[in-house]
Design a protein around this nucleic acid. Structure first.
Ligand SMILES: [Zn+2]
Length: 470
DNA sequence: CGAGTTTGACCTGCGC
DNA sequence: GCGCAGGTCAAACTCG
Protein backbone atom coordinates (compact mmCIF):
# COMPACT_ATOMS: atom_id res chain seq x y z
CA UNK A 1 0.00 0.00 0.00
CA UNK A 2 2.49 2.49 1.05
CA UNK A 3 4.89 1.45 -1.52
CA UNK A 4 3.68 3.69 -4.20
CA UNK A 5 3.76 6.86 -2.23
CA UNK A 6 6.97 5.89 -0.64
CA UNK A 7 8.48 5.48 -3.96
CA UNK A 8 7.10 8.66 -5.20
CA UNK A 9 8.55 10.61 -2.41
CA UNK A 10 11.90 9.10 -2.78
CA UNK A 11 13.85 9.21 -5.93
CA UNK A 12 11.59 7.51 -8.34
CA UNK A 13 13.66 7.42 -11.41
CA UNK A 14 16.70 5.88 -9.96
CA UNK A 15 14.71 3.59 -7.86
CA UNK A 16 12.61 2.46 -10.63
CA UNK A 17 15.43 1.81 -12.93
CA UNK A 18 17.41 0.00 -10.42
CA UNK A 19 14.50 -1.95 -9.36
CA UNK A 20 13.99 -2.97 -12.85
CA UNK A 21 17.43 -4.30 -13.02
CA UNK A 22 17.35 -5.80 -9.67
CA UNK A 23 14.07 -7.47 -9.74
CA UNK A 24 14.71 -11.13 -10.18
CA UNK A 25 11.34 -11.47 -11.73
CA UNK A 26 11.75 -8.70 -14.12
CA UNK A 27 12.28 -10.23 -17.44
CA UNK A 28 12.42 -6.84 -18.90
CA UNK A 29 15.01 -6.74 -21.54
CA UNK A 30 16.96 -3.60 -21.98
CA UNK A 31 14.96 -2.74 -25.01
CA UNK A 32 11.70 -3.40 -23.35
CA UNK A 33 10.40 0.00 -24.20
CA UNK A 34 10.54 -0.78 -27.79
CA UNK A 35 8.52 -3.85 -27.22
CA UNK A 36 6.08 -2.00 -25.15
CA UNK A 37 5.08 -0.25 -28.24
CA UNK A 38 5.18 -3.34 -30.29
CA UNK A 39 3.12 -5.41 -28.02
CA UNK A 40 0.74 -3.21 -26.28
CA UNK A 41 -2.67 -2.93 -25.23
CA UNK A 42 -4.23 -5.80 -23.58
CA UNK A 43 -7.13 -3.58 -22.91
CA UNK A 44 -6.89 -1.04 -25.58
CA UNK A 45 -10.56 -0.86 -25.74
CA UNK A 46 -10.75 0.78 -22.48
CA UNK A 47 -7.96 2.96 -23.46
CA UNK A 48 -9.90 6.07 -22.97
CA UNK A 49 -11.15 5.26 -19.58
CA UNK A 50 -7.91 3.87 -18.50
CA UNK A 51 -6.09 6.72 -19.94
CA UNK A 52 -8.34 9.12 -18.17
CA UNK A 53 -7.88 7.39 -14.90
CA UNK A 54 -4.30 6.92 -15.54
CA UNK A 55 -3.73 10.50 -16.30
CA UNK A 56 -5.24 11.72 -13.15
CA UNK A 57 -2.99 9.69 -11.06
CA UNK A 58 -0.27 10.10 -13.42
CA UNK A 59 -0.31 13.74 -12.72
CA UNK A 60 -0.05 13.17 -9.07
CA UNK A 61 2.81 10.92 -9.61
CA UNK A 62 4.38 13.07 -12.13
CA UNK A 63 4.30 15.89 -9.75
CA UNK A 64 5.96 13.80 -7.20
CA UNK A 65 8.55 12.81 -9.63
CA UNK A 66 9.02 16.27 -10.76
CA UNK A 67 9.16 17.54 -7.28
CA UNK A 68 11.77 15.16 -6.19
CA UNK A 69 13.60 15.65 -9.37
CA UNK A 70 13.50 19.32 -8.95
CA UNK A 71 14.65 19.04 -5.45
CA UNK A 72 17.60 17.14 -6.51
CA UNK A 73 18.29 19.44 -9.31
CA UNK A 74 17.81 22.39 -7.09
CA UNK A 75 20.28 21.02 -4.70
CA UNK A 76 22.72 20.49 -7.40
CA UNK A 77 22.17 23.85 -8.84
CA UNK A 78 22.37 25.57 -5.57
CA UNK A 79 25.59 23.92 -4.84
CA UNK A 80 26.77 24.65 -8.25
CA UNK A 81 25.67 28.18 -7.87
CA UNK A 82 27.66 28.44 -4.73
CA UNK A 83 30.61 27.10 -6.47
CA UNK A 84 30.23 29.44 -9.30
CA UNK A 85 29.74 32.39 -7.05
CA UNK A 86 32.91 31.51 -5.27
CA UNK A 87 34.58 31.54 -8.64
CA UNK A 88 36.17 28.23 -8.12
CA UNK A 89 36.19 25.77 -10.92
CA UNK A 90 37.48 22.61 -9.29
CA UNK A 91 35.84 22.75 -5.94
CA UNK A 92 32.38 23.14 -7.23
CA UNK A 93 32.77 20.18 -9.45
CA UNK A 94 34.25 18.05 -6.74
CA UNK A 95 31.63 19.24 -4.35
CA UNK A 96 29.02 18.52 -6.85
CA UNK A 97 30.46 15.15 -7.42
CA UNK A 98 30.59 14.40 -3.77
CA UNK A 99 27.05 15.50 -3.32
CA UNK A 100 25.92 13.47 -6.19
CA UNK A 101 27.67 10.50 -4.82
CA UNK A 102 26.01 11.11 -1.53
CA UNK A 103 22.72 11.30 -3.20
CA UNK A 104 23.49 8.17 -5.05
CA UNK A 105 24.36 6.38 -1.89
CA UNK A 106 21.18 7.52 -0.28
CA UNK A 107 19.29 6.37 -3.24
CA UNK A 108 20.97 3.07 -3.15
CA UNK A 109 20.21 2.66 0.49
CA UNK A 110 16.63 3.53 -0.02
CA UNK A 111 16.54 1.36 -3.00
CA UNK A 112 17.78 -1.51 -0.95
CA UNK A 113 15.14 -0.93 1.63
CA UNK A 114 12.53 -0.84 -1.00
CA UNK A 115 13.84 -3.95 -2.52
CA UNK A 116 13.55 -5.71 0.74
CA UNK A 117 10.11 -4.39 1.23
CA UNK A 118 9.18 -5.46 -2.17
CA UNK A 119 10.55 -8.90 -1.71
CA UNK A 120 8.70 -9.24 1.51
CA UNK A 121 5.46 -8.03 0.09
CA UNK A 122 5.96 -10.14 -2.93
CA UNK A 123 6.60 -13.19 -0.88
CA UNK A 124 3.66 -12.52 1.30
CA UNK A 125 1.56 -12.08 -1.69
CA UNK A 126 2.68 -15.29 -3.26
CA UNK A 127 2.25 -17.15 -0.04
CA UNK A 128 -1.21 -15.79 0.36
CA UNK A 129 -2.08 -16.66 -3.12
CA UNK A 130 -0.85 -20.16 -2.74
CA UNK A 131 -2.82 -20.46 0.39
CA UNK A 132 -5.87 -19.22 -1.34
CA UNK A 133 -5.51 -21.63 -4.18
CA UNK A 134 -4.88 -24.43 -1.80
CA UNK A 135 -7.93 -23.54 0.15
CA UNK A 136 -9.98 -23.37 -2.94
CA UNK A 137 -8.73 -26.68 -4.05
CA UNK A 138 -9.43 -28.20 -0.72
CA UNK A 139 -12.89 -26.83 -0.88
CA UNK A 140 -13.27 -28.35 -4.27
CA UNK A 141 -12.05 -31.66 -3.13
CA UNK A 142 -14.52 -31.68 -0.34
CA UNK A 143 -17.23 -30.87 -2.74
CA UNK A 144 -16.05 -33.56 -5.05
CA UNK A 145 -16.04 -36.08 -2.32
CA UNK A 146 -19.48 -35.15 -1.29
CA UNK A 147 -20.72 -35.10 -4.78
CA UNK A 148 -19.14 -38.33 -5.71
CA UNK A 149 -20.70 -39.92 -2.72
CA UNK A 150 -24.07 -38.69 -3.72
CA UNK A 151 -23.37 -39.56 -7.30
CA UNK A 152 -22.56 -43.07 -6.44
CA UNK A 153 -25.91 -43.28 -4.88
CA UNK A 154 -27.81 -41.56 -7.58
CA UNK A 155 -25.76 -42.86 -10.45
CA UNK A 156 -26.55 -39.71 -12.30
CA UNK A 157 -23.43 -37.63 -12.80
CA UNK A 158 -25.18 -34.67 -14.22
CA UNK A 159 -23.12 -31.91 -12.82
CA UNK A 160 -20.01 -33.53 -13.96
CA UNK A 161 -21.39 -33.97 -17.35
CA UNK A 162 -21.86 -30.29 -17.50
CA UNK A 163 -18.19 -29.87 -17.40
CA UNK A 164 -17.35 -31.55 -20.57
CA UNK A 165 -20.63 -31.32 -22.30
CA UNK A 166 -19.78 -34.56 -23.89
CA UNK A 167 -21.79 -37.65 -23.95
CA UNK A 168 -21.37 -40.74 -21.95
CA UNK A 169 -17.96 -41.22 -23.43
CA UNK A 170 -16.67 -38.28 -21.54
CA UNK A 171 -18.38 -39.15 -18.37
CA UNK A 172 -15.63 -41.30 -17.16
CA UNK A 173 -13.03 -38.79 -17.94
CA UNK A 174 -14.79 -36.12 -16.10
CA UNK A 175 -15.49 -38.31 -13.23
CA UNK A 176 -12.00 -39.49 -12.90
CA UNK A 177 -10.73 -36.02 -13.28
CA UNK A 178 -12.98 -34.67 -10.66
CA UNK A 179 -11.98 -37.42 -8.40
CA UNK A 180 -8.51 -36.05 -8.56
CA UNK A 181 -7.17 -39.29 -9.82
CA UNK A 182 -4.60 -38.33 -12.32
CA UNK A 183 -3.52 -41.81 -13.01
CA UNK A 184 -7.03 -42.73 -13.86
CA UNK A 185 -7.18 -40.24 -16.63
CA UNK A 186 -5.78 -42.60 -19.13
CA UNK A 187 -8.09 -41.68 -21.90
CA UNK A 188 -7.79 -37.96 -22.10
CA UNK A 189 -5.46 -37.31 -24.94
CA UNK A 190 -4.55 -33.78 -24.22
CA UNK A 191 -3.69 -34.30 -20.66
CA UNK A 192 -1.89 -37.42 -21.57
CA UNK A 193 0.19 -35.67 -24.05
CA UNK A 194 0.94 -32.88 -21.71
CA UNK A 195 1.67 -35.01 -18.77
CA UNK A 196 3.77 -37.38 -20.72
CA UNK A 197 5.69 -34.62 -22.31
CA UNK A 198 6.18 -32.90 -19.07
CA UNK A 199 6.42 -36.08 -17.15
CA UNK A 200 9.86 -35.48 -15.72
CA UNK A 201 8.81 -32.19 -14.23
CA UNK A 202 5.33 -32.98 -13.23
CA UNK A 203 6.43 -34.21 -9.93
CA UNK A 204 4.31 -31.46 -8.56
CA UNK A 205 2.32 -32.78 -5.68
CA UNK A 206 -0.77 -30.88 -6.66
CA UNK A 207 -0.77 -33.02 -9.70
CA UNK A 208 -4.20 -34.27 -9.03
CA UNK A 209 -5.89 -30.97 -9.10
CA UNK A 210 -3.52 -29.66 -11.60
CA UNK A 211 -4.48 -32.31 -14.01
CA UNK A 212 -8.01 -31.25 -13.62
CA UNK A 213 -7.11 -27.66 -13.87
CA UNK A 214 -5.06 -28.27 -16.91
CA UNK A 215 -8.12 -29.33 -18.71
CA UNK A 216 -9.77 -26.12 -17.90
CA UNK A 217 -9.00 -23.25 -20.13
CA UNK A 218 -9.19 -19.62 -19.57
CA UNK A 219 -9.26 -17.49 -22.61
CA UNK A 220 -8.85 -13.80 -22.63
CA UNK A 221 -10.11 -11.67 -25.40
CA UNK A 222 -8.44 -8.40 -25.85
CA UNK A 223 -7.98 -5.98 -28.59
CA UNK A 224 -4.40 -5.89 -29.60
CA UNK A 225 -2.41 -5.25 -32.66
CA UNK A 226 0.49 -7.10 -31.24
CA UNK A 227 0.98 -10.71 -32.03
CA UNK A 228 0.73 -11.59 -28.41
CA UNK A 229 -0.33 -9.93 -25.24
CA UNK A 230 2.20 -9.83 -22.52
CA UNK A 231 1.16 -11.34 -19.32
CA UNK A 232 4.37 -11.29 -17.41
CA UNK A 233 5.44 -14.74 -18.31
CA UNK A 234 8.08 -15.98 -20.64
CA UNK A 235 6.71 -17.99 -23.47
CA UNK A 236 8.29 -20.06 -26.09
CA UNK A 237 6.51 -20.76 -29.26
CA UNK A 238 6.41 -24.39 -30.09
CA UNK A 239 4.00 -24.55 -32.89
CA UNK A 240 1.69 -22.80 -35.22
CA UNK A 241 -1.30 -24.08 -37.02
CA UNK A 242 -3.89 -22.86 -39.32
CA UNK A 243 -7.10 -23.30 -37.49
CA UNK A 244 -10.14 -24.28 -39.37
CA UNK A 245 -12.44 -21.47 -40.22
CA UNK A 246 -9.96 -18.84 -39.34
CA UNK A 247 -7.59 -17.17 -41.73
CA UNK A 248 -5.30 -16.34 -38.87
CA UNK A 249 -2.94 -18.98 -37.65
CA UNK A 250 -3.06 -20.19 -34.10
CA UNK A 251 0.18 -20.05 -32.24
CA UNK A 252 1.12 -22.35 -29.43
CA UNK A 253 3.28 -21.23 -26.59
CA UNK A 254 4.57 -22.87 -23.51
CA UNK A 255 5.83 -21.24 -20.41
CA UNK A 256 9.58 -21.16 -20.16
CA UNK A 257 9.93 -19.39 -16.88
CA UNK A 258 10.78 -22.71 -15.36
CA UNK A 259 11.69 -25.96 -16.91
CA UNK A 260 8.74 -28.20 -16.89
CA UNK A 261 6.13 -25.62 -16.25
CA UNK A 262 3.02 -27.17 -17.72
CA UNK A 263 1.33 -23.95 -18.61
CA UNK A 264 0.60 -23.39 -22.25
CA UNK A 265 -1.29 -20.89 -24.16
CA UNK A 266 -2.75 -20.48 -27.55
CA UNK A 267 -2.90 -17.21 -29.29
CA UNK A 268 -5.19 -16.57 -32.14
CA UNK A 269 -7.00 -13.73 -33.67
CA UNK A 270 -10.68 -13.77 -33.96
CA UNK A 271 -11.85 -14.58 -37.42
CA UNK A 272 -14.68 -12.10 -37.24
CA UNK A 273 -12.61 -9.35 -35.83
CA UNK A 274 -8.96 -9.73 -36.37
CA UNK A 275 -8.14 -6.92 -34.07
CA UNK A 276 -9.21 -9.10 -31.23
CA UNK A 277 -6.64 -11.38 -29.86
CA UNK A 278 -7.79 -14.47 -28.08
CA UNK A 279 -5.30 -15.89 -25.66
CA UNK A 280 -6.18 -19.19 -24.12
CA UNK A 281 -4.33 -20.32 -21.04
CA UNK A 282 -4.15 -23.81 -19.81
CA UNK A 283 -2.51 -25.15 -16.72
CA UNK A 284 -1.00 -23.81 -13.59
CA UNK A 285 2.49 -22.51 -13.20
CA UNK A 286 4.79 -24.66 -11.18
CA UNK A 287 7.11 -21.91 -10.16
CA UNK A 288 7.13 -18.50 -8.56
CA UNK A 289 5.87 -15.77 -10.74
CA UNK A 290 6.58 -12.13 -11.15
CA UNK A 291 3.73 -9.98 -9.98
CA UNK A 292 2.61 -9.19 -13.45
CA UNK A 293 2.56 -12.83 -14.30
CA UNK A 294 0.94 -13.73 -11.05
CA UNK A 295 -1.93 -11.57 -12.01
CA UNK A 296 -2.72 -13.42 -15.15
CA UNK A 297 -1.77 -16.75 -13.75
CA UNK A 298 -3.98 -16.39 -10.77
CA UNK A 299 -6.71 -15.21 -13.00
CA UNK A 300 -6.32 -18.34 -14.96
CA UNK A 301 -6.13 -20.71 -12.09
CA UNK A 302 -8.80 -18.96 -10.13
CA UNK A 303 -11.06 -18.88 -13.09
CA UNK A 304 -10.40 -22.51 -13.69
CA UNK A 305 -11.13 -23.31 -10.11
CA UNK A 306 -14.13 -21.13 -10.33
CA UNK A 307 -15.36 -22.94 -13.34
CA UNK A 308 -14.93 -26.30 -11.78
CA UNK A 309 -16.44 -25.26 -8.57
CA UNK A 310 -19.15 -23.35 -10.28
CA UNK A 311 -20.06 -26.10 -12.63
CA UNK A 312 -20.09 -28.66 -9.97
CA UNK A 313 -21.76 -26.78 -7.30
CA UNK A 314 -24.09 -24.66 -9.29
CA UNK A 315 -26.83 -27.18 -9.00
CA UNK A 316 -26.81 -27.39 -5.31
CA UNK A 317 -24.94 -24.53 -3.87
CA UNK A 318 -26.10 -21.91 -6.19
CA UNK A 319 -22.63 -20.68 -6.76
CA UNK A 320 -22.86 -17.70 -8.98
CA UNK A 321 -26.31 -16.91 -8.13
CA UNK A 322 -27.71 -15.17 -11.17
CA UNK A 323 -29.22 -12.45 -9.12
CA UNK A 324 -26.06 -11.79 -7.39
CA UNK A 325 -24.33 -11.81 -10.68
CA UNK A 326 -26.76 -9.46 -12.19
CA UNK A 327 -26.17 -7.21 -9.30
CA UNK A 328 -22.52 -7.49 -9.79
CA UNK A 329 -22.74 -6.87 -13.44
CA UNK A 330 -24.93 -3.89 -13.26
CA UNK A 331 -22.38 -1.24 -12.50
CA UNK A 332 -20.25 -2.34 -15.33
CA UNK A 333 -22.73 -3.95 -17.52
CA UNK A 334 -20.57 -4.02 -20.54
CA UNK A 335 -17.89 -6.60 -20.31
CA UNK A 336 -18.63 -10.16 -19.61
CA UNK A 337 -16.80 -13.24 -18.63
CA UNK A 338 -18.28 -16.42 -19.83
CA UNK A 339 -18.02 -19.78 -18.36
CA UNK A 340 -18.64 -22.30 -20.96
CA UNK A 341 -18.42 -26.00 -20.91
CA UNK A 342 -18.14 -26.16 -24.62
CA UNK A 343 -16.29 -29.13 -25.83
CA UNK A 344 -13.71 -30.26 -25.60
CA UNK A 345 -12.61 -28.15 -22.69
CA UNK A 346 -14.52 -26.23 -20.17
CA UNK A 347 -13.52 -22.68 -20.76
CA UNK A 348 -13.74 -19.42 -19.00
CA UNK A 349 -13.72 -16.51 -21.34
CA UNK A 350 -12.84 -13.08 -20.15
CA UNK A 351 -13.97 -10.68 -22.73
CA UNK A 352 -11.93 -7.58 -22.38
CA UNK A 353 -12.89 -6.28 -25.72
CA UNK A 354 -15.66 -3.94 -26.30
CA UNK A 355 -18.91 -3.71 -24.52
CA UNK A 356 -21.85 -6.00 -24.70
CA UNK A 357 -22.89 -8.51 -27.22
CA UNK A 358 -19.62 -10.22 -27.69
CA UNK A 359 -20.08 -12.75 -25.03
CA UNK A 360 -23.01 -14.32 -26.67
CA UNK A 361 -20.94 -15.65 -29.45
CA UNK A 362 -18.57 -17.38 -27.19
CA UNK A 363 -21.29 -19.00 -25.39
CA UNK A 364 -23.19 -20.34 -28.25
CA UNK A 365 -20.32 -22.15 -29.78
CA UNK A 366 -20.47 -25.86 -29.91
CA UNK A 367 -22.51 -25.96 -26.85
CA UNK A 368 -24.93 -28.73 -26.56
CA UNK A 369 -27.50 -27.04 -24.51
CA UNK A 370 -26.02 -27.77 -21.19
CA UNK A 371 -27.03 -25.41 -18.50
CA UNK A 372 -23.56 -25.02 -17.22
CA UNK A 373 -22.82 -22.02 -19.27
CA UNK A 374 -22.87 -19.12 -16.98
CA UNK A 375 -22.44 -15.47 -17.31
CA UNK A 376 -20.35 -13.84 -14.80
CA UNK A 377 -19.22 -10.30 -14.71
CA UNK A 378 -15.88 -9.87 -16.21
CA UNK A 379 -13.84 -9.29 -13.20
CA UNK A 380 -11.00 -8.14 -15.28
CA UNK A 381 -13.03 -5.64 -17.12
CA UNK A 382 -14.86 -4.32 -14.19
CA UNK A 383 -12.24 -2.11 -12.82
CA UNK A 384 -11.80 -0.56 -16.14
CA UNK A 385 -15.40 0.02 -16.61
CA UNK A 386 -16.58 0.82 -13.20
CA UNK A 387 -13.72 1.95 -11.12
CA UNK A 388 -13.40 5.55 -10.63
CA UNK A 389 -10.04 7.00 -9.92
CA UNK A 390 -10.87 7.40 -6.33
CA UNK A 391 -11.71 3.82 -6.05
CA UNK A 392 -8.34 2.52 -6.69
CA UNK A 393 -6.22 1.56 -3.86
CA UNK A 394 -3.31 3.81 -3.78
CA UNK A 395 -0.82 1.12 -4.17
CA UNK A 396 -2.45 -0.66 -6.97
CA UNK A 397 -3.09 2.46 -8.77
CA UNK A 398 0.41 3.57 -8.24
CA UNK A 399 1.51 0.40 -9.84
CA UNK A 400 -0.81 0.99 -12.62
CA UNK A 401 0.40 4.39 -13.44
CA UNK A 402 3.95 3.52 -12.87
CA UNK A 403 3.65 0.89 -15.41
CA UNK A 404 2.36 3.34 -17.85
CA UNK A 405 5.16 5.53 -16.99
CA UNK A 406 7.16 2.85 -18.68
CA UNK A 407 9.66 3.11 -15.94
CA UNK A 408 9.20 -0.17 -14.28
CA UNK A 409 6.55 -2.73 -14.05
CA UNK A 410 7.85 -4.56 -11.10
CA UNK A 411 8.08 -2.01 -8.45
CA UNK A 412 4.66 -2.22 -7.09
CA UNK A 413 3.57 -5.63 -6.14
CA UNK A 414 0.36 -6.32 -7.86
CA UNK A 415 -1.35 -7.47 -4.87
CA UNK A 416 -4.54 -9.23 -5.01
CA UNK A 417 -6.13 -6.61 -2.94
CA UNK A 418 -8.67 -8.13 -0.69
CA UNK A 419 -12.00 -7.12 -2.03
CA UNK A 420 -12.85 -5.85 1.38
CA UNK A 421 -10.46 -3.08 0.78
CA UNK A 422 -12.38 -2.04 -2.18
CA UNK A 423 -15.63 -2.06 -0.40
CA UNK A 424 -14.10 0.21 2.10
CA UNK A 425 -14.02 2.83 -0.51
CA UNK A 426 -16.75 5.37 -0.39
CA UNK A 427 -18.16 4.61 -3.76
CA UNK A 428 -21.17 2.60 -3.00
CA UNK A 429 -22.60 1.06 -6.07
CA UNK A 430 -19.65 -0.87 -7.15
CA UNK A 431 -18.58 -1.52 -3.67
CA UNK A 432 -21.88 -3.09 -2.95
CA UNK A 433 -21.57 -5.30 -5.90
CA UNK A 434 -18.12 -6.20 -4.89
CA UNK A 435 -19.07 -7.06 -1.42
CA UNK A 436 -21.85 -9.14 -2.80
CA UNK A 437 -19.48 -10.92 -5.06
CA UNK A 438 -16.99 -11.38 -2.35
CA UNK A 439 -19.33 -13.68 -0.62
CA UNK A 440 -18.01 -16.32 -2.87
CA UNK A 441 -14.39 -17.07 -2.27
CA UNK A 442 -13.83 -18.45 -5.69
CA UNK A 443 -15.09 -15.50 -7.42
CA UNK A 444 -13.27 -13.32 -5.03
CA UNK A 445 -10.08 -14.89 -6.05
CA UNK A 446 -10.88 -14.58 -9.66
CA UNK A 447 -11.97 -11.07 -9.27
CA UNK A 448 -8.95 -10.05 -7.35
CA UNK A 449 -6.70 -11.82 -9.71
CA UNK A 450 -8.36 -10.33 -12.66
CA UNK A 451 -8.16 -6.91 -11.22
CA UNK A 452 -4.53 -7.31 -10.72
CA UNK A 453 -4.27 -8.67 -14.16
CA UNK A 454 -5.35 -5.35 -15.39
CA UNK A 455 -2.38 -3.86 -13.74
CA UNK A 456 -0.26 -6.76 -14.56
CA UNK A 457 -1.42 -6.89 -18.08
CA UNK A 458 -0.57 -3.32 -18.60
CA UNK A 459 2.54 -3.58 -16.67
CA UNK A 460 3.50 -6.59 -18.52
CA UNK A 461 3.71 -4.53 -21.58
CA UNK A 462 7.12 -3.66 -20.42
CA UNK A 463 8.29 -7.13 -20.42
CA UNK A 464 7.18 -8.58 -23.61
CA UNK A 465 9.19 -11.56 -24.40
CA UNK A 466 8.13 -12.64 -27.77
CA UNK A 467 10.30 -11.83 -30.64
CA UNK A 468 7.48 -12.30 -32.97
CA UNK A 469 7.01 -8.66 -33.38
CA UNK A 470 10.17 -8.01 -35.17
C1' DC B 1 26.82 -20.45 -29.24
C1' DG B 2 22.56 -20.54 -26.90
C1' DA B 3 17.88 -19.32 -26.96
C1' DG B 4 13.97 -18.73 -29.52
C1' DT B 5 11.23 -19.27 -33.96
C1' DT B 6 9.69 -21.64 -38.08
C1' DT B 7 7.64 -25.25 -40.21
C1' DG B 8 6.78 -29.78 -41.91
C1' DA B 9 6.11 -34.20 -39.90
C1' DC B 10 3.91 -36.77 -36.69
C1' DC B 11 0.41 -38.30 -33.25
C1' DT B 12 -4.17 -38.76 -31.55
C1' DG B 13 -9.11 -38.42 -31.30
C1' DC B 14 -13.25 -38.01 -33.71
C1' DG B 15 -16.76 -38.39 -37.23
C1' DC B 16 -18.16 -40.64 -41.28
C1' DG C 1 -10.29 -47.56 -42.31
C1' DC C 2 -9.92 -42.93 -43.88
C1' DG C 3 -9.69 -38.16 -43.66
C1' DC C 4 -9.77 -34.14 -40.92
C1' DA C 5 -8.50 -31.17 -37.24
C1' DG C 6 -6.10 -30.01 -33.11
C1' DG C 7 -1.98 -30.36 -30.86
C1' DT C 8 3.00 -31.41 -30.39
C1' DC C 9 7.68 -32.52 -31.80
C1' DA C 10 12.02 -31.53 -33.53
C1' DA C 11 15.30 -30.32 -37.16
C1' DA C 12 16.57 -26.36 -39.43
C1' DC C 13 16.99 -21.78 -39.16
C1' DT C 14 17.50 -16.97 -37.20
C1' DC C 15 19.06 -13.71 -34.09
C1' DG C 16 21.69 -11.37 -30.57
ZN1 LIG D 1 5.08 -21.13 -15.89
Amino acid sequence: MGLGPTLDTSEPLVLLNQTTRWNPFAMVPADSHRKVLAEMDLFSNHENKVAAIKKENFHVNEHDDINTGLNLVTHDRSSMGDGISSTEDENPTTNKLAKMQNELQKMNMENLKLKEMYIEVSNNYNALQMELVTLMQQQQQEQHTLRNASLDQQAAPKQLLELTSRDSSSEEKTLSASKNVVAAREDTPDSDAWTSNKAPKLTVPENTDEATMRKVRVSVRARSEASMISDGCQWRKYGQKMAKGNPCPRAYYRCTMAVGCPVRKQVQRLAEDQTILVTTYEGTHSHPLPPAAVAMASTTSAAATMLLSGSMSSAEHGFMNPNLLAQAIRPSSSSIATISASAPFPTVTLDLTHPPNNFQKVNSTAFEGHPSSQYIPSAAAMPLQAFHPGMYNQSRFAGFQLSHDKVSNQLIPHQIAPPQHQSQQPQTAFANSLSAITSDPNFTAALAAAITSIMGGNNANNESNNNNTH
